[in-house]
Simulated assay, not measured.
Amino acid sequence: MEKLAYTLRLCTPADLDRLLVLIGKHAEFEKAHYSPEGKKEQLHAALFTEPVFLTCVIAEVDRVVIGYATYTFDYSTWDAAKFIYLDCLYIEDEYRSYGIGKHLMDWVKKTGEENDCVNMQWQTPDFNERAIQFYKRLGGIGKDKVRFTLPLNLRF
């Protein structure tokens, strides 16, 4: 496979339209319901308004956003310590296997280390075998659990 020139950087407000497209593709890939309605404003607030709740790292090729990773900080009761949570990692299919995913993971990992996090956590659907193998190669340790969602607000 030939080398691919790409850059990683923090998301800016100008990236939101393209980010919404990628989020839609990510949701479709994970067989999840997704509606972009109202999301641009909500993401803008979460990413760029104090207090910042979400951070997004963009991967781009030739100034086109082709992937992203988002993360938050949370607290572990069991560890009695802060951890970094990788909420989403997505790269368009034709740009996979170039090392972009590893570099996005490294960015989030380094951020966690710089912020004294005890660990980095994330999840992927059990049918996403490619991602599971990727995460295992990086040293990730899977835990068998069932994730539940309880809707709290009908506006979504």
Rank of each mutant, 00 (worst) to 15 (best):
Y34I: 07
Y34M: 07
Y34E: 06
P36G: 05
E37S: 12
E37K: 13
G38W: 04
K39Q: 14
K39R: 11
K39Y: 09
L43Y: 12
L43T: 06
H44K: 06
A45T: 11
A46I: 04
L47D: 00
F48E: 07
F48S: 12
F48P: 11
T49R: 10
E50V: 12
E50S: 15
P51A: 11
V52K: 02
F53W: 02
F53L: 08
F53Q: 11
F53Y: 09
L54R: 09
T55E: 11
T55Q: 14
T55D: 08
T55V: 12
V57F: 06
V57G: 05
V57W: 06
V57M: 10
I58V: 14
A59W: 09
V61A: 05
V61P: 00
V61T: 03
D62S: 15
D62Y: 09
R63C: 15
R63F: 10
R63Q: 14
V65G: 00
V65Y: 04
V65S: 09
I66E: 11
Y68E: 02
A69R: 07
Y71D: 01
T72I: 07
T72G: 07
F73K: 11
D74I: 00
D74V: 00
Y75H: 08
Y75I: 08
S76M: 00
S76D: 02
W78P: 01
D79F: 03
A80T: 08
A80L: 10
A80M: 12
A81D: 13
K82R: 15
K82I: 12
F83K: 02
I84D: 00
I84K: 00
I84F: 04
Y85V: 04
Y85I: 02
L86Q: 13
